[in-house]
Nucleic acid binder design. Structure first.
Length: 345
DNA sequence: TCTGGGGTCCTAGGACCC
DNA sequence: TCTGGGGTCCTAGGACCC
């Protein structure tokens, strides 16, 4: 039987900010776009628990956060700081795992099936890890312990912040059953809405359905979702993912109608993407340009070359050719550029 | 209410090859 | 003159995650 830990840092960005600036400790901190007195464009990246008490949460439009909490401390993200903190923490976590998988800047899965004897042993290990992270990095995290990644992730979220939740094999169904559907990995706003139309509210409601019903509704994904609702997930903790694509995008402060200006920004994006490509010793074959119009209608256009390259001129010119049909008439909110089908140089 | 920016994975139709 | 089935690549869009 497997024993998996999921470790998740608590309100990571605001916590790092408070660590670096002790005068912020205990304050309602919102890291994200500049609210500009309620006229800002963008969203909340992460809110401290004090800010969450005002109803502010990540992905919320920054204008809405401003209305809910004008007295919160609003900060722009400092990714260099977060990456440095993250690297230190990941090194600690990795040292305790047979197999280790970083899943984003502030979370990771640890396979400890052979490291510990049983779930009691895993619980002790989890406490040790939480203490070591607090001691060495002055940050708190929450940990879930379970027989697989899916349940471990849900468990780490169960008692935040600074929480430890152990779910043994025999307790998995009972643990999941009362939870909201949204807790399942892969159920976002769209899928949630479709399932709620069928009066399905909890993971238990889903588990009680026949797999066939879900398959008809959602296809192959429905079959997987039914397994998830039973707490079944056989996916492995995987080390060392290869990058699949590199991209950059920008939302204009005001929707743009100046084609020359848009092309200028696209050139800048090409330069930034190209630099990252070179720094990582990649070549690319596919170029994708993204355009979002005034009212959020979004289109992509891509082109695969017959060869792989890391040439800036090719990237720039291909991008311009791809975006050209979109530069007539309508106001543009966002443009983006991404390269994929990467090959090591 | 107004929706960032970094990504991943999946689907589906059409082209093309054997 | 009519036309199967499998596989892969390309393109566009969509859902989701942190």
């Amino acid at each position: 039987m497997r024993i998996i830990l999921h470790v998740d840092l608590d309100a990571f960005f605001p916590s790092v900010e408070a660590r670096e600036h002790p005068e912020l400790k205990g304050k309602a901190i919102v890291v994200g776009a500049d609210p500009k007195e309620g006229r800002g464009r963008g969203v909340v990246s992460s809110a401290s628990y004090e800010a969450r008490r005002h109803g502010v949460h990540s992905a919320m439009p920054i204008t809405r956060a401003w209305k809910l909490c004008p007295d919160c401390v609003y900060l722009r993200p400092h990714f260099d700081l977060y990456i440095r903190a993250s690297n230190g923490i990941m090194r600690i976590l990795k040292s305790h795992a047979e197999r280790f998988e970083q899943a984003g800047i502030d979370e990771a899965y640890l396979d400890v099936s052979k490291t510990v004897k049983d779930f009691d042993g895993a619980q002790v290990l989890a406490k040790d890890i939480m203490e070591e992270v607090l001691d060495k990095e002055k940050l708190t995290c929450s940990v879930g312990v379970a027989p697989n990644k899916l349940v471990a992730k849900i468990a780490s979220d169960y008692r935040k912040p600074c929480g430890l939740t152990v779910v043994r094999e025999e307790d998995v169904r009972g643990f999941l059953s009362p939870l909201d559907l949204r807790k399942l990995l892969g159920v976002g706003p769209r899928t949630e809405a479709r399932l709620k139309e069928l009066k399905l509210e909890t993971v238990g409601d889903l588990a009680a359905l026949s797999p066939e019903v879900l398959r008809r509704l959602l296809g192959v994904w429905g079959t997987r979702l039914h397994e998830y609702s039973q707490g079944l997930d056989s996916s492995e903790v995987v080390e060392g993912y290869e990058t699949k694509s590199i991209g950059r995008e920008v939302t204009f402060e005001q929707d743009a109608d100046d084609g020359e200006m848009v092309l200028g920004v696209l050139e800048e994006l090409a330069e930034v993407v190209h630099k990252e490509l070179i720094d990582n010793a990649f070549r690319f074959k596919t170029i994708t340009v993204k355009v979002r119009y005034q009212h959020f209608e979004t289109h992509t256009r891509s082109k695969s070359l017959l060869f792989s390259t890391d040439d800036l001129d090719i990237l720039r010119n291909s991008a311009k050719r791809l975006i050209a049909p979109h530069l007539r008439g309508r106001r543009i909110r966002l443009i983006g550029l991404r390269v994929s089908t990467l090959l090591r140089r």
